[in-house]
Amino acid sequence: MSAIRLECLGEACPIPLIKAQKKMAALRVGEVMIVETDHSCALKNVPEWASKEGYHVEVTEVDAGLWEIYIKKTK
């Protein structure tokens, strides 16, 4: 299954969230987006928005201070 990557390294709040919202709007149901971020605040507001929308969200710390947020467009 392919996933769309959204690279947000070096971007501070609220840019990762706004970019994720824009990108998500273009995705089809069932597709997965991976947000790459090194901004810890994005770990709070991006998953918060995604779960409020009813999407499936998972966060993994892939390296020191580097995270990937998996969001599946479920509807």
């Binding site: 390294l9 070096g10 971007e11 090194d38 810890s40 020191a64 201070g65 580097l66």
Partner: peptide, 9 residues
């Protein structure tokens, strides 16, 4: 253990 030098975009 989250220290990271961030890049300038």
């Amino acid at each position: 253990s989250q220290f990271r030098i961030k890049k300038i975009r």
